[in-house]
């Protein structure tokens, strides 16, 4: 249980696939025009990640090393097709607004990276948990970027108006340029937080050392 929570925390915060590892930029930029799209995209990718990690881990002893990337891609694209058909059947409006970015989950580098770096070397259960953690981390990043873009660029959050009628939305933020700018500022914020935390940890370590020296 403890390991499970630690894995989740690592995926969402410390090793966030988008904000820290800088993977999967295309969907992060493209599907964050509204919070609803971002959540849909994030969860779709999470489902694919959990199942592809699980199956790649189960098959890790049977996939020949030389052909592993091709093998991974076939497994991933199978699950992506399933998710696509399910979304088409049950969430049609979301399916339409995400459009081609659903099949493009196949080439999302986060999924291939987790398959290569984690699932192909670990047991099935931790691999599935890793998929869940990384997927939630990805969803969290999309949520962060889309919240900024929808509020500033459209004056709404999840479709609900926030500033009332008087607010003239900054259209730039829902345009492609706004995607790059918002993500740039969000990642700069993350780097700032990490730098501050590292600085604090270093100061802590120094203080510990001094007290140790003093006692000696």
């Amino acid at each position: 249980m403890k390991g499970f929570l630690r894995q989740l925390k690592e995926g969402i915060l410390d090793h966030n696939p988008t904000l820290v590892q800088l993977l999967g930029m295309c969907p992060t930029l493209a599907t964050t025009t509204s919070v609803k799209n971002a959540i849909g995209m994030g969860l779709a990718a999470t489902v694919v990640l959990i199942f592809s990690n699980l199956f790649i881990s189960l098959l890790r002893k049977f996939i020949p090393k030389e052909a592993r990337i091709a093998g991974f891609i076939v497994i991933i694209s199978g699950f992506v097709t399933m998710v696509e058909l399910l979304m088409k059947a049950f969430f049609y409006s979301l399916y339409q607004s995400l459009g081609i970015f659903i099949p493009l989950i196949v080439v999302n580098c986060i999924i291939l990276a987790r398959a290569e770096a984690y699932a192909s070397k670990n047991k099935p259960l931790p691999s599935a948990v890793d998929g869940l953690a990384m997927g939630l981390g990805f969803t969290f990043a999309l949520l962060l970027v889309s919240t900024v873009r929808e509020i500033v660029g459209n004056g709404t959050f999840l479709g609900v108006s926030i500033f009332g009628k008087g607010y003239a939305p900054a259209l730039l933020f829902v345009m492609p340029a706004g995607a790059f700018l918002t993500l740039g500022f969000v990642i700069a914020g993350v780097q700032k937080v990490r730098a501050v935390r590292e600085e604090r940890a270093r100061a802590q370590a120094r203080a510990n050392e001094e007290t140790k020296e003093a006692t000696v």
Partner: peptide, 17 residues
């Protein structure tokens, strides 16, 4: 400092966009 590396690259891409 916080913008060094990836963030400033993204912002430059935003301006090009």
């Amino acid at each position: 400092r916080a913008f060094r590396g990836f963030p400033i690259t993204l912002i430059a891409a935003g301006l090009l966009a």
